[in-house]
Design a binder for these strands. Structure first.
Lengths: 216, 216
DNA sequence: AATAGCTTCGTTGCATGTAATCTTGGGGTG
DNA sequence: CACCCCAAGATTACATGCAACGAAGCTATT
């Protein structure tokens, strides 16, 4: 019953570096020198090497020839490509959720949507983000397809990284309207409609993103 | 201009283990002991450890608690989930290929299809597989979206692993008919039609797969 | 003969040594 | 003043040592 043993140094270093990247403490372009990190974190090079390796595989860092890994930059172009993928994956998740799931999902989504609306009214930015992510997470868990969940996690990792450079805000009202449309489609029990609604939502996010990148 | 330096021991071990898994020399369930492999391959444990780690991340192996990694088994259920993902990704690739690509793709696909038909007539199983894979690879390269390519590579890795246990053959005539339908849709320049045709193709493969798994 | 305890073996994960290779900065030269 | 070459530094990748931890098998006891 115990959780995964997190007493692995390599894991905790991976988590820590990840958070430092998302928090901006490690800006895109910053070098991830294994010896330097090992000294800063007061551990040997082995677990650091493993952690950096995982960051590269997650595309949070990229290998530069003989200069070590650096925190990855991600431009609007790459992000748009990722959103193409996200569009079809979120659509798939919504379709599968309708096919596999029941009333429980609908009520949970209603709750999150209500919280989302409250957060927007109150101007609580953190809560808005939280509710937004929860909405998608619920659907993806309900899909019953772990592969979709894993891939969407990877997509979200890239999106979070992109927020370090690109400012990507879809109008908050638009997001709520989209979510409500998705929920309505799920409630109606129509898998194809749910897929379309989810895809339309992500497609609009992608458009907003590109428009914003254009205006720079 | 030189290719990626493959003179890394860890890389060559990774490639070798991968091939041994696909060839069946390492059957699903076989233990991947790092010390044992290091001795067999006459290298130290470090590069072997890295290679095994990558296999686990690719889901070609799975970690068993305190007994090391073992070659992964993949059942019909997991494979069906993977095909759900593959369906939407191949659909996306086909749509993007139509939007981004031109006549070059169409002629290349015609060539591969002709070769595919010849191979089926001659009963050349290896050539059939080759042509089939080439058809999909062409579309995915033409999509211009590297993310789709990477994810479909990962999907294909799982499919190849699954072939070690599950026998997955869609009738060869069906595959050719499907491919011709996809090509027709691409030729017509209709992105939505191409997406639907590609999705239908994978969906049929998935159905054939599940039917075959059912009958056991 | 069955079972409980113990010993041995194998495994992982981390630390550290070392050679090869590339980058980079400085000093000397045309 | 610009440029080139060389040397020093840093990095990776691999080898190897070592302790902790379970698992599996053997032995002794009931």
């Amino acid at each position: 019953m115990s959780a995964i043993s997190t007493d692995r140094i390599a894991d905790s270093i991976y988590d820590r570096l990840r958070e430092e990247i998302f928090a901006g403490d490690l800006a895109p372009g910053a070098r991830l020198s294994v010896p330097a990190l090992a000294e800063r974190l007061a551990v040997s090079r082995s677990p650091v090497r493993e952690a950096v390796f995982r960051l590269v595989q997650d595309r949070l860092a990229s290998e530069e020839p003989r200069r070590g890994a650096v925190v990855a930059k991600i431009g609007a172009r790459e992000l748009a490509a990722i959103y193409d993928v996200r569009e079809v994956l979120e659509g798939l998740a919504a379709r599968l959720a309708v096919e596999n799931s029941g009333r429980r999902l609908v009520t949970a989504l209603h709750d999150v949507l209500a919280e989302h609306e409250r957060a927007v009214r109150d101007g609580d930015v953190a809560a808005v983000t939280e509710a937004d992510m929860r909405f998608h997470a619920l659907i993806r868990q309900a899909s019953g397809n772990p592969e979709v969940g894993r891939l969407l996690d990877a997509v979200q990792t890239q999106v979070r990284l992109a927020m370090r450079t690109t400012r990507v805000t879809a109008g908050p009202r638009q997001a709520i309207d989209d979510h409500r449309a998705i929920l309505t489609a799920i409630e109606s029990g129509d898998p194809a409609a749910a897929e379309l609604a989810a895809r339309a939502h992500i497609f609009r996010l992608r458009s907003a993103l590109l428009r914003q990148a254009e205006g720079e």
